[in-house]
Nucleic acid binder design. Structure first.
Lengths: 231, 231
DNA sequence: CGATGAAGTTAGTAATCAATCACTTACTAC
DNA sequence: GTAGTAAGTGATTGATTACTAACTTCATCG
């Protein structure tokens, strides 16, 4: 009763609360009562805004899509160089996941995979969009002569996406104990290096090895302490 | 009542049924009643074998671990060449996931992430083990001069793991409509090529591009039709 | 200012869930 | 063969779930 709000505003509140709680409780265990309590409403009030729980999930998925697209759009005001932009894109993706960590769980929830086919389609499209953008950046970098051209940009994009997802899973499993964008940036530099110019076939000097570690990327040069737990 | 079995046998049956159903229903929605019905028992009988549902999940995780380790062990009778063995390892991983598709869902279930910390530790160890094995193979390949030495084998292993996980997610999202080990083999060849010798800095001829596509790997040379849905 | 519609509440429902109970039946060692 | 034990049953419980219906209160606009 305290502070009655417009439907749109409430809906948004509910969706955000759902995202927050989906991480704590798990998407498939998240009850409408929890969400309502978190927003400060009665459980019944939720159904004023979403007739079925599935409708709420659909709204959540839409919101996630918006978040992604919004960040992708912001990148266009970022660096123009395709390699730099690729770094920025992966960083944006990981930053978003770090601040909305329910996303991976939702991606594998049963709400998505068996209950709500529309949801699966939305995420498939989102991932396709992500893949397309990466593919384009890699293509551009290849045209610029910054990446080798004998790697299919579509496959390269799959590898970059895999990098992101592998990293996120590792991060989840070891209790989110490292900085996601930082480690992602470091790994991406490694991946792009292999996409890049040929290495000397000679043995690498200890110096070059150290250099690679301390300045893996032209854009960001922080040394990331390795996580020891996953080896 | 029909055909009373030993506890060990029953436990195994229950665990396998859980794995089967966790894929259909989702790990967090899987009820003891469903499992019991699938095995041909009453719901109460389940608690004769597992005092708590969590204990059942623990047994399931142990079983998954066994499956992995068993396949890894089998690899030691496989190819000796580290690159070939790497291919075999990734193929084994993907074959197992294809035949036990509940695994990725369990990996992101809330049973694992919030309810059952022991479970998370088990999977983290499993993944660590996988990473270590890949790292060793890459190290060996580097020593043999088959892979470039300026890539940290630990990072390279993370990239390979990411390849697997990205692939599995894509496979899940588009409805499991491609052959997992086959596409994995193809992508791994691409990844390892970038880990390999330098490409010619010259522009690739159309011929070299075609050649790469039709025979990406020395070990397996099947062309895999691309999935169009995720781009 | 007052009516009207939307936002929110209280109080339910039927369904489903893990877990426990007292009890019965099958197998096995002696 | 029979005593002891382990596997399995039927019934039930208390908690939780999504969802509904009837009622109340707020805000705003004519």
């Amino acid at each position: 009763m305290r502070s009655r709000k417009s439907a749109e505003e409430r809906k948004s509140e509910i969706v955000e609360a759902t995202l927050r709680l989906a991480d704590k409780v798990g998407p498939d265990r998240l009850a409408t009562g929890h969400i309502a309590e978190s927003v400060g409403l009665t459980q019944a009030a939720l159904f004023r805004h979403f007739r079925k729980k599935q409708d709420l999930w659909k709204a959540v998925a839409t919101r996630i899509g918006e978040k992604f697209r919004q960040r992708w759009l912001a990148l266009e005001r970022g660096p123009a160089d395709p390699v730099d932009r690729l770094h920025a894109m992966v960083a944006a993706q990981l930053t978003l996941i770090q601040s909305t960590p329910a996303i991976p769980a939702i991606l594998f929830s049963r709400e998505l995979h068996v209950e709500n086919r529309a949801l699966r389609v939305m995420f498939a499209e989102l991932m396709g969009n992500f893949h397309g953008r990466i593919e384009q950046l890699i293509s551009a970098a290849q045209r610029d002569g910054k990446l080798r051209r004998d790697v299919d940009p579509r496959d390269a994009a799959f590898l970059v996406i895999g990098l992101v997802q592998g990293l996120v899973l590792r991060w989840s499993l070891i209790g989110r104990s490292f900085d996601l964008p930082e480690e992602g940036d470091r790994l991406l530099a490694v991946q792009l290096a292999t996409f890049g110019r040929a290495p000397a076939t000679v043995e690498p000097s200890p110096a070059s090895r150290a250099r690679r570690r301390s300045a893996p990327s032209a854009t960001r040069a922080r040394v990331v302490k390795r996580s020891k737990s996953a080896s």
